[in-house]
């Protein structure tokens, strides 16, 4: 042809990221000859659905394998040491072993606390009073988000006339894939509702858990197993109770007493329950934030508050309190 040639304006194969939430329309350029409406083919650049399905299947198989492994581990434990529950050292070493590899075992973790997976989203429902936002639970929520795929939703109950906007966004922005609930490991549903704080999970097999302290204990178990050392566990427990009963709700006298004991405990170790950050730290920090007493705190407590701040877990609730 007596025409000059132009270089192609773009390369032949452009990869286009297409959303996966829509159904596919066949390529409109594929068969020119047919009538307009009947032209359909795959849109170019789309990730092959077969590959995706294969990936999903593999994930599913891996998940099942891990579940199986956990069950077998459990069985092995009872078979090899029939009186495992009596032998504290054995069981504690076993549990620490089985919980060491965090991410891959996360599902089994959930299973041990929440019960068998029924193939649907396991939704934890928390009713909270908008006048007293449960700060510790919000911290635990952000920790859970780091560990699991958590679907977080905030609702306002019809018995509450209005809720400040920062409480509606306190669980962070809406997840991009929130339309597919089944793809999440854990649901965290926060309902602003008077009067008391309550957590519901399985209404058939479990009583509602009442009180922020108890809900916090439950949620923390989803993150790490409770210390197997009974002394340590009791210590954490007593700090949590002290935080919620005396620091958050107690009189000024009780308040300063707690601050003193906090100070002496933090003089001995970096965190409240020894060398590791624990629920005790979360509870005490949040209750201090709520009673806004951190400025008048003694030196060790001040230092501890600073190291808590440095962890970054508490920045969302600090924003909320402003």
């Amino acid at each position: 042809m007596p025409m000059y040639q132009v270089k192609p304006v773009s390369e032949a194969h452009i990869q286009i990221e297409l959303p996966t939430c829509m159904y596919k329309v066949p390529n409109i350029h594929a068969h020119r000859g047919d009538s307009c409406a009947s032209e359909h083919a795959l849109q170019n650049g789309e990730v092959d659905p077969a590959v995706k399905a294969l990936g999903a299947r593999q994930d599913e198989i891996m998940r099942k394998l891990y579940e199986l492994k956990a069950t077998v581990d459990g069985l092995a434990k009872t078979v090899t040491t029939p009186d495992a529950d009596l032998d504290l050292t054995v069981s504690s070493s076993l549990s620490s072993q089985s919980f060491s590899s965090a991410t891959s075992q996360s599902i089994t973790d959930l299973n041990t606390v929440l019960g068998k997976d029924l193939g649907a989203l396991r939704d934890i429902v928390i009713n909270a009073n908008p006048a007293r936002p449960p700060l510790s639970l919000l911290v635990l929520h952000s920790l859970l988000c780091q560990r699991y795929r958590v679907l977080s939703t905030v609702h306002v109950h019809s018995s509450v006339p209005s809720v400040p906007p920062q409480l509606l966004s306190c669980l962070g922005p809406r997840h991009a894939e929130s339309y597919a609930r089944h793809t999440f490991q854990l649901g965290f549903t926060l309902i602003w509702k008077d009067p008391k704080l309550q957590m519901k999970f399985s209404i058939q097999n479990m009583c509602p858990i009442e009180g922020e302290a108890n809900v916090a204990r439950f949620l923390f178990k989803l993150l790490t197993p409770y210390p197997s050392d009974p002394v340590l566990a009791t210590l954490v427990d007593s700090w949590v109770d002290m935080a919620f009963f005396q620091l958050a709700e107690g009189s000024a006298k009780e308040h300063s007493a707690v601050l003193r004991s906090l100070n002496s405990a933090l003089g001995r170790s970096p965190w409240l329950a020894g060398s590791e950050f624990s629920l005790a730290d979360i509870a005490c920090y949040c209750c201090m934030l709520q009673s806004s007493s951190s400025s008048a705190a003694p030196a060790n407590v001040q230092r501890w508050v600073k190291s808590c701040d440095n962890l970054g877990h508490f920045s969302p609730v600090k924003l909320l309190m402003q």
Partner: peptide, 13 residues
């Protein structure tokens, strides 16, 4: 009683 935004559950749930 109702929630705002409305609660949405999936059939499998």
């Amino acid at each position: 009683k109702f929630l705002e935004p409305t609660l949405r559950l999936e059939y499998t749930e």
